[in-house]
């Protein structure tokens, strides 16, 4: 790849990978969930830089917001260990994850040095460039799919989250 002037994308990408790494390595589950939200936020910035503002808003509000709420709720409902136990447990877990930063670093160096020539297609500009038109006129089936999927999710919530009757 070209080593040109340091562009802003490189910094965002660096932060994106670092937050993802932190998410995976974080000591407590709660911090991992917050790390995930941060990763989403970094992705949002990246999407904004790539001229995809609408999808970026969705990513920010839904992934960084809603999914974090779901995760943090689930974690706080299921956190059974005391802090001392977590500490003990995490030492053992971190030993399994210790190679990961080095793997990522090596991968990064490797791809930095190795030149890969991808045969990219010739660009044909899109006929319809308005997201609203694409989503609401051309991809209606996906919208119907979204509604059905949300319906399935609603049944999932009523079935799975229902209180346990004295078992």
């Amino acid at each position: 790849m070209r080593l040109g002037n340091l562009e802003i994308e490189i910094i965002i990408a660096l932060f994106l990978v670092l937050t993802a790494l932190w998410t995976v390595m974080a000591r407590s589950l709660l911090r991992a969930a917050i790390g995930l939200a941060l990763t989403s936020a970094m992705l949002t910035v990246m999407m904004y830089k790539l001229n995809a503002p609408l999808a970026a808003v969705f990513e920010l509000s839904v992934c960084s917001g809603l999914i974090s709420v779901i995760f943090i709720t689930t974690i706080s409902l299921t956190q059974p260990l005391t802090w001392a136990e977590i500490y003990e447990h995490e030492r053992e877990r971190l030993s399994r994850f210790r190679p990961l930063p080095f793997i990522i670093l090596l991968l990064g160096l490797f791809f930095w040095l190795v030149k890969v020539d991808l045969a990219l297609p010739t660009v044909v500009a899109e006929k319809v460039t308005d997201v609203r038109v694409v989503l609401w006129s051309l991809r209606q089936l996906d919208l119907v799919g979204q509604i059905i999927c949300l319906l399935a999710g609603a049944f999932g919530v009523t079935i799975l989250f229902k209180a346990w009757r004295g078992k």
Binding site: G145, C149, A152, G153
Partner: peptide, 13 residues
């Protein structure tokens, strides 16, 4: 993909 996902969600539940 969308319909695969719908079917998958229904089968998880």
């Amino acid at each position: 993909y969308v319909f695969i996902e719908i079917t998958a969600v229904a089968s998880f539940i």
